[in-house]
Amino acid sequence: MSVQTNDKPKVSLRAFLAKYSVLIAFAAIVIFFAVASPTFLTPANLFNVLVNNVVMLAIVALGLTIVISSGGIDLSVGVSVDMASMVFVMLLAAGYSGVVGVGGGLGAALVVGILNAILITRLNISPFLATLGVLFIGQSAQQLATSGGQPIYLTSGYAGDQFNAIARTALLGIPTPVIVLILCALAVHFLLHRSVFGRYVQAMGAQPGVAWYSGIRVPRELSLVHVLCALLAGVTGILLSATVKSYVPLSGNAFLLDAIGATFIGTTLSRERKPSVIGTLLGVFLLAIVKNGLLLVGWNFYWQQVGIGVLVFLVLAASFGLRRAAH
């Protein structure tokens, strides 16, 4: 009984297209906008896309990548973003130092993550319903805390100015938020694709029963998954507040659908449709570039949403359809 050798999958054109549909779409879109808009490929515009459209969405999507890998979902990432943002801004506005502000903000996101973890692993509520409930509660809580959704602004003189400065400066030519993203992406990449924890996450995602029967502490690992996701969303919340010098209630929700979309676009890179850090980042770049490009060529905001919907549909359909045909 020898190991068979003639079983390598044949690389057909279709399989190739299926595998790299995201990259091909990416290249095509870049070329399209480069031709359609003279400002698209300028460094200033690309810098703007990176800092304003990519970084914050990408960090939220990294968290969702972990959750979706484990076979779950977190609909409450927006709440984690908002809670971190709210507590961060409130603490700074009350005169506390930046360290306290960041700690408090991340702590607030942690609370959301722990709440999710308890609902899912202790009360055995499905991740979809548990995080949906937390989403509802979190939204109402914000409105109650801000008299119906009044933004909180950081006026001059607070530590907020320093943060705003940090958010807008660069270290060794790289904008600070981008450095934060790179650090988060590297951390999640190693965690998900190199660590023992990551293997457990993949196993839970592939077949939870097998994980349990292999002696994996599924509740513990799953709790960690949701806490990490909430913390990453919290990082985005703090970056958001530092950039716009304010807390606007319910602004985190804007990230949820884009982050889910980006993560699933990223799954087309894998034959088994598994999420990956690289895939998710590609998905985020794709969405950010489409939004920016459509804006430059003069489409209004609502048509951008249509454009993104069509894009997600096309990439997923192309990848899965071609893959099925190649099989």
């Binding site: 660590s195 023992v196 293997r199 196993a203 097998v210």
Partner: peptide
């Protein structure tokens, strides 16, 4: 299929799943 092997994971990932501590 429900409890023995994870069909969507590789042979390698399945074999080492319960003993990852040894290889880490």
């Amino acid at each position: 299929r429900a409890h023995g092997v994870a069909l969507g994971l590789s042979v390698r990932e399945n074999i080492s799943l319960a003993s990852l501590r040894r290889y880490s």
